[in-house]
Simulated scan of single mutants.
Amino acid sequence: MERERIRVLIEQAKQAWLAADGEAFARLFAEDGLFIVPGQRWQGREAIRQAVEQFGENYSHIKIDLHQIAIDGERAVIEWTWEDFNKSTTKRTRAEDAIVVDFSNGAIRRWREYIDAETPKQPD
């Protein structure tokens, strides 16, 4: 898979999260794709779509700052900073996020996130 195609898919994933668009995010995955975050796992486009839409029901004002993408063959490692607003608690959360994404046949086969919401932000 071409490096530029991988970058495009990652940008599309970012945009889907910003819009809380579960359909757009799920469409990037293989039919039996796997989406994993600490403590949770969803397999298949429909489960992934529902997970993102449920997130969107509970959170808003998502902000993603993409720091870097490293690509090796059909694998990419992404570092981004994620911020969101919990609608029920009115709390804003910020986390550093490393994501390993495996691709196959032009789609995401596995998206695995390693989220750090505890390390203090380094001053600018």
Rank of each mutant, 00 (worst) to 15 (best):
R3N: 11
R5G: 07
R5H: 14
R5N: 14
I6N: 14
I6H: 12
R7I: 01
V8G: 08
I10T: 06
I10L: 15
I10F: 08
A13W: 15
K14D: 13
K14C: 07
A16M: 10
A16R: 13
A16I: 10
W17G: 07
W17T: 04
W17M: 10
W17P: 04
L18G: 01
L18Q: 02
A19K: 05
G22F: 01
G22Q: 07
E23L: 12
E23G: 04
F25H: 14
F25Q: 13
R27F: 10
L28C: 03
F29H: 14
A30H: 14
D32G: 10
F35K: 12
F35T: 12
I36A: 11
V37F: 09
R41C: 15
R41D: 15
R41W: 13
R41E: 15
W42Q: 12
Q43W: 15
Q43F: 15
R45W: 09
R45I: 04
E46R: 08
E46F: 10
I48L: 12
I48N: 08
R49F: 10
R49N: 05
R49T: 07
Q50V: 14
Q50F: 04
Q50H: 09
A51F: 14
V52F: 06
V52R: 13
F55E: 11
G56P: 14
E57L: 04
E57Y: 02
E57P: 07
N58V: 04
Y59Q: 05
S60V: 03
I62Q: 05
I62K: 06
K63S: 11
K63H: 09
H67L: 13
H67E: 15
Q68D: 06
I69N: 06
A70P: 01
A70V: 10
I71A: 05
I71E: 15
D72Y: 13
D72H: 07
D72S: 04
D72Q: 13
G73P: 09
G73W: 10
E74F: 01
V77E: 10
V77Y: 06
I78G: 05
I78H: 02
I78P: 06
E79W: 03
E79H: 05
E79L: 10
E79F: 11
W82R: 02
E83P: 00
D84T: 00
F85C: 01
N86A: 03
K87E: 14
T89P: 11
T90N: 07
T90H: 09
K91E: 06
T93F: 01
T93R: 02
T93A: 00
T93P: 00
R94I: 05
A95K: 01
A95C: 09
A95H: 03
E96T: 10
D97F: 02
D97H: 02
A98E: 06
A98T: 09
I99Y: 03
V100C: 00
V100P: 00
V100D: 01
V101K: 00
D102W: 08
S104P: 02
S104M: 04
N105P: 01
G106N: 03
R112Y: 05
E113G: 04
Y114G: 02
I115A: 02
I115C: 07
I115S: 07
I115Q: 09
T119Y: 01
T119R: 00
P120R: 02
K121T: 15
Q122G: 12
Q122K: 06
P123F: 04
D124L: 12
